[in-house]
Amino acid sequence: MNKIAKQEILDNLRNASPSKGDFVTDNSVIYDKKWTQEQKIERFCQVTSAVNTQIKQTTLHDAQRDLIDLLTEKGVRHLMQGSPSPIAKEITDNWTAMDTGVKLRSFDQKIEACKEELFSVDASLTTTLGAIAETGSLILWPTREEPRLLSLVPPIHVALVYEDRFFNTFLEAIEQEQWTTHMPTNALLISGPSKTSDIEQELCYGVHGPKELVVMIIRNN
């Protein structure tokens, strides 16, 4: 049935009169959106703060302390990270040695084996591929080490982004990083915590995804 259906649909389309005109794609309106390094970070913070994202600017040196302070303040008991967590490791290393009430967990099994656990932790930590200034978006590129549900299920999501990984636009990220040659199973843009305004257009955060999104911008100094 599939083959016949496909053939008939394609035949119908091919028998149609050809479209008139030439369809030149002029992306200049997007390329015109350009900012300096600092402007990009500033714009990112401004746009994403407007949708309730919390921003914490720090350095690699202070990141662990800042993260612990932040989690403690929020009353987080369990923080889940990837396994092995490539960049976050620098931040979460020696966690047990720290005097903290926050327990560190790892997403080290297949989802089938740890569904209950994942749905019960209260925060997660992930890396990002970078961020987009225009729309205040994080680019997430989940991997074997950092599964995609880490940025979705726990009610608080903390994401790290390095200061030299800010792009002007989504298009710039796609082109500069040559996404088309290596699309992952799942790539994501995340712009704020989960939200809805389905009830009388009243904005509410935390419907199905995280209620809080914290972006830690890692500065070089």
């Binding site: 989802i111 991997t143 074997r144 599964p147 790539a187 995804g209």
Partner: peptide
Amino acid sequence: TYFNMISSPRKEGEKD
């Protein structure tokens, strides 16, 4: 909030 780009089912070694 989300722009979700799906290009394949779970690959070997992926956890979810």
